[in-house]
């Protein structure tokens, strides 16, 4: 599974002209791209055509936002079928989604909502992950999300929760370092403790992103460059997990492609520092 290496970027429609243009050097330093799975399930047209053109040149990983693995609603079989069909086309190196729920009881809030950190939730989510992996015929990765509330019923730390689910379901971890930074600040836990508590062999991909600081809390916006303190936490993470494929995930306030390529070079330099 770990035949992905190096540094990647989230593939955004604004950047297709640059990536697919005539300049062969424009993607220098970009080893792979991550697509948002939902953008390409059951659709056609120019975005799909361009994505497939990129997939012919670069390794692709698929990242989903709506599996709702923690919901009490049944898994959406139509969605899973679409995910599998897309994977058949794209042949992604990795498939991931978030450790969260996005809606329940027939509704969808289109947000990555927090789960109570309990044994019962571990059982619930691990069972669903196993089901998804059986259906897709491959391992998936779960990503830690930024959270803004905890629950009175919480029985364990977030890293113990993530680790236990991944161990029981035998799935991988997509570690979002910015999300650790955000949640650590919001809930007052130690990001170092988080990193130290992870099963390092399960971390198969890393996300880096930016956020918005609001004094008493931080909001994970993914619409800013990766801040220096997140980059420092990334170096600390690599110290634990070793070399792991890493990407910048920019979801808003999308800059020119060249800016992200330049930012990715800084990430590569940080990784080299951490691993030297």
């Amino acid at each position: 599974m770990r035949d992905l290496a190096g540094f990647g970027l989230g593939l955004r429609p604004q950047h297709f002209p640059s990536i697919l243009g005539d300049d062969p050097d424009v993607c220098e330093g970009v080893d792979w791209f991550e697509i948002i799975s939902e953008n390409f399930i059951g659709v056609g047209g120019p975005l799909l055509r361009n994505m497939r053109a990129v997939a012919e040149k670069f390794p692709i990983v698929m990242h989903g936002v709506s599996m709702s693995i923690g919901s009490v609603d049944p898994l959406d079989t139509a969605y899973l079928a679409g995910l599998k069909a897309l994977a058949d086309v794209v042949q992604p190196k990795l498939i991931s989604d978030h450790l969260c729920w996005t809606g329940a009881h027939g509704h969808n809030m289109h947000d990555l909502l927090p789960l109570p950190l309990t044994e019962a939730t571990v059982d619930h989510v691990a069972g669903r992950v196993r089901h998804v992996q059986d259906y897709l015929g491959r391992q998936i990765l779960l990503e830690n999300t930024s959270t803004y509330v905890t629950f009175a019923d919480d029985e364990m730390t977030e890293w113990a929760f993530l680790s236990e689910i991944c161990q029981r379901a035998d799935c991988g971890i997509l570690l979002d370092v910015n999300n650790i930074f955000v949640s650590a600040f919001n809930h007052g836990f130690s990001a170092s403790d988080y990193l130290a508590g992870l099963p390092v062999n399960r971390v198969q991909q890393i996300h880096l992103a930016g956020h918005e600081h609001n004094g008493d809390h931080i909001i994970d916006t993914h619409d800013q460059p990766v801040p220096l303190d997140v980059l420092a936490l990334y170096e600390a993470a690599l110290d634990h997990v070793g070399p792991v494929p890493t990407m910048i995930e920019r979801d808003g306030n999308i800059p020119p492609f060249a800016d992200l390529v330049a930012e990715l070079k800084g990430v590569r330099a940080a990784a080299e520092r951490a691993l030297s």
Binding site: Y148, V149, D154
Partner: peptide
């Protein structure tokens, strides 16, 4: 009552839901 510490930042979810839509 289900939120830890009274959920002082629950407003982030309130806002994000409407803003995203």
């Amino acid at each position: 009552p289900l939120l830890g510490n009274g959920g002082p930042f629950m407003k982030v979810y309130d806002h994000a839901y409407r803003a995203r839509l």
